[in-house]
Design a protein around this nucleic acid. Structure first.
Length: 141
DNA sequence: GCCAACGTTGGC
DNA sequence: GCCAACGTTGGC
């Protein structure tokens, strides 16, 4: 099982929009970048991902799960573009900001930091654990 | 709002 | 197949 990060502008598609879809989830449509698409092709059912708000917030706000593997993007009129479906799993009790991430030595090599323009990217297990620990206080397990 | 970094397109 | 021109993203 692998870990990922999905980036979205809240004004286009926010964490609230995503959560409103519940267990059904939603297509991660709109990706028009080969690197990002290729990562989605590698995703498997049950893989987990971070949901990141770009632009003003610049924070990881919650956790999502892949609930449909790669398929054609229903909103694209070009068959090259594909996407997975994801559903919200839970919200962070404390969103983890890009600043927080940059301050951690262990997270300095994240693609989020190194290549800010890639909207779908893999996350290592160590990075996953670190950010989960930062975002979820012990009070909420 | 600016601009650096990165992708894509198309002429040659 | 190269590369200049252009477009987009996202942090600042």
């Amino acid at each position: 099982m692998r870990y990922w990060l999905f980036k979205s502008e809240p004004s286009t598609w926010s964490w609230d929009n995503q959560r409103a879809k519940g267990e059904i989830g939603e297509e991660w449509d709109g990706v028009r970048n080969y690197q990002a698409r290729n990562f989605m092709r590698e995703m498997k059912l049950g893989d987990l991902g971070f949901f990141y708000h770009s632009q003003k917030e610049k924070s990881v706000v919650g956790i999502v799960e892949v609930c449909a593997e790669c398929h054609p993007d229903s909103k694209a009129n070009d068959p090259r573009w594909e996407c997975v479906d994801i559903k919200a799993v839970r919200s962070f009790t404390k969103p983890v900001s890009l600043d927080d991430i940059k301050q951690r030595e262990a997270l300095a090599e994240m693609i989020l930091v190194k290549n800010s323009r890639l909207s779908v990217q893999p996350v290592t297990e160590q990075e996953w654990r670190e950010i989960c620990a930062m975002g979820e206080t012990s009070a909420h397990k």
